[in-house]
């Protein structure tokens, strides 16, 4: 993982932004932010903001891509040009393509698709502002957008990253922590049965550390799950 920092990133148990190791940044979630979409949501973890829109199920063209007994999922993760310090040139990078794929795989197990043969459900995720943990923020937004779209689901999908910084296990890495971390593990899971649907890692950790991070993320993820439920209900409690 990333660069070596000369200075310590965690001083007296506090992180750069004053958080404790197991503290999540301020979370904001809003459902129904894009009127044109069948479902949509905006999710922020600190300065990271993702907006997701779901279109469909709708008939899939060209025909040869259709599945006779199920809907298929298409997913696009995209970063806005102004979402980071150095402007990103529009158009999908290799990184964005890979994240699009793992995001799709993280969401698919939560969906019942067999009722919608020959169709596609398009999930579009835009990272409006990036400060670490963008893919899991995008997954939270997509989970809410799918539920808002009325897609039949087994469960919501919760995303959260964990990692190791200096010698400390931390949760919800911001951009700078991501750059200087020893390791970073983004995770997505279906909370009812703690079924993990996304698990990636880069960096170096011993097996015990990996297991601790996974356990901590599943645990802290309950808070993210509660926020998702609150946001969905809020749409109808205005």
């Amino acid at each position: 993982m990333g660069m070596k920092s000369k200075e310590k990133m965690i001083v007296e148990g506090k992180r750069l932004d004053g958080r404790t190791p197991d503290e999540i940044r301020e979370i904001e979630m809003k459902v129904g932010v894009i009127p044109n979409a069948n479902g949509s949501a905006r999710v922020s973890f600190g300065r990271t903001t993702a907006v997701a829109a779901v279109y469909g199920p709708r008939i899939l063209h060209p025909r040869r891509l259709q599945e006779p007994d199920t809907a298929i999922i298409r997913c696009r993760y995209n970063m806005a040009p102004f979402s980071v310090d150095e402007r990103i040139r529009p158009g999908s990078s290799r990184r964005e393509k890979e994240i699009s794929k793992v995001t799709r795989l993280a969401l698919e197990p939560a969906l019942f698709l067999e009722k919608y043969p020959e169709t596609v459900i398009d999930i579009y995720i835009e990272i409006i502002q990036a400060d670490g943990s963008t893919r899991v923020t995008g997954i939270n937004a997509a989970s809410l957008a799918l539920a808002d779209a009325g897609a039949p689901m087994r469960d919501l999908v919760v995303g959260l990253a964990g990692g190791k910084l200096d010698d400390t296990i931390i949760i919800d890495l911001c951009g700078k922590e991501d750059n200087y971390s020893v390791a970073d593990i983004p995770i997505a899971f279906l909370p009812r049965k703690n079924e993990i649907t996304l698990l990636q890692m880069d960096g170096q950790l011993n097996p015990d550390e990996v297991k601790t991070i996974v356990k901590n993320v599943l645990n802290a993820g309950k808070k993210v799950y509660e926020k998702q439920k609150e946001a969905l209900k809020k749409k109808y409690h205005k």
Partner: peptide
């Protein structure tokens, strides 16, 4: 278990959910 965001309905034999959105 519910598949949707919706309004639950219980009868003598069944539990069902009327979705609040969807195609």
């Amino acid at each position: 278990i519910s598949k949707f965001i919706g309004i639950p309905k219980e009868t003598h034999d069944y539990i069902s959910v009327i979705p609040l959105s969807g195609v």
